[in-house]
Design a protein around this nucleic acid. Structure first.
Lengths: 154, 154
DNA sequence: TAATTAAAGACCTGAATGGTCCTGTTTCGG
DNA sequence: CCGAAACAGGACCATTCAGGTCTTTAATTA
């Protein structure tokens, strides 16, 4: 279904929620806020920390806080950090498919991958925030002419 | 990794290859052309037939042929037929997430889903074909390579 | 009527994701 | 100085689901 992994989904939610708090927040606290089970929250935060999205503070009174503002984080970068490279198919870069099937579709998939990547890069976590941000998001999308650029590929 | 299911991948390849043949083609023949195992080809063709992408002819001298031209089939429609709705997350249409987690991300995901959907709708199977399209496609890739890099820290 | 081929669905298997837990290390408070 | 709190970094298990195979039935043609 072309669906996002749940971990990446969690990561987005956690980052947005974390951005709404001030000071450091513990993972149990974030679990309470988001409804995601605590161990899973901790796991996601570790990954996010390793990729520089959040700063951690160890010890008592420790916790996490954003490393930069939500506006400076793209949806694409978060997904890439949690799930790895954003690509629809295994055969990228014009390499032969690992299955050895002779699709001969050359780099057509790359175009699609790039288009989707660009789309996700154009959406910041800031614009994922609820309420008033909604209208601005729609505005952003309208400006994204990625589909037009790629259209028909020729 | 935000990846497409392999069945959908096969479906694209099979349709493109089928469009290059003339007359009806049996599934064993298509298996030979594409390198995909025959039972899987048959399975995919059944789905494609049910969704009106191909026309089937039973009995001796039977087989499959395209119901319409490749130019009239979008990548999005094929994926939707094989994999179901194209959506990154389970929570669509502003409904509450099934997990009951209070993400409160309003309809932000819908915007992303719509953006990706329209991107895929803008790409026809015709433009996925190899050969002459390759050079132009590769050219596009090179132009988009910069934005393609995953931004981690900055 | 016999051979060929699609239709339909049941069923098995294996990989991978999601989720949990454990141990170690750091930091703060008493 | 000691204990509690909280992150770091793994290992580990389990469930799900996609991928693939097989069997039976129906239709068409020669």
């Amino acid at each position: 279904m072309l669906k996002l992994s749940r971990l990446a989904d969690y990561a987005i939610v956690i980052l947005v929620k974390l951005g709404e708090q001030d000071g450091v927040v513990t993972s149990p606290a974030l679990a309470g806020i988001t409804g995601v089970p605590e161990p899973t929250v901790a796991k996601v935060l570790k990954v996010l920390s390793a990729h520089g999205f959040v700063l951690s503070q160890r010890g008592a009174k420790g916790g996490y806080r954003l490393a930069r503002s939500l506006a400076e984080m793209s949806v694409a970068s978060v997904i890439a950090a949690v799930d790895g490279q954003i690509a629809l198919t295994a055969c990228v870069g014009g390499r032969e498919c690992d299955t050895g099937l002779s699709c001969g579709l050359c780099g057509s998939w790359d175009v699609i991958n790039t288009a989707i990547r660009s789309t996700l890069e154009g959406i910041s976590l800031e614009s994922m925030r609820p309420k008033e941000a909604c209208s601005t998001v729609l505005h952003q999308i309208n400006k994204l002419n990625v589909a037009q650029t790629i259209r028909e590929g020729a």
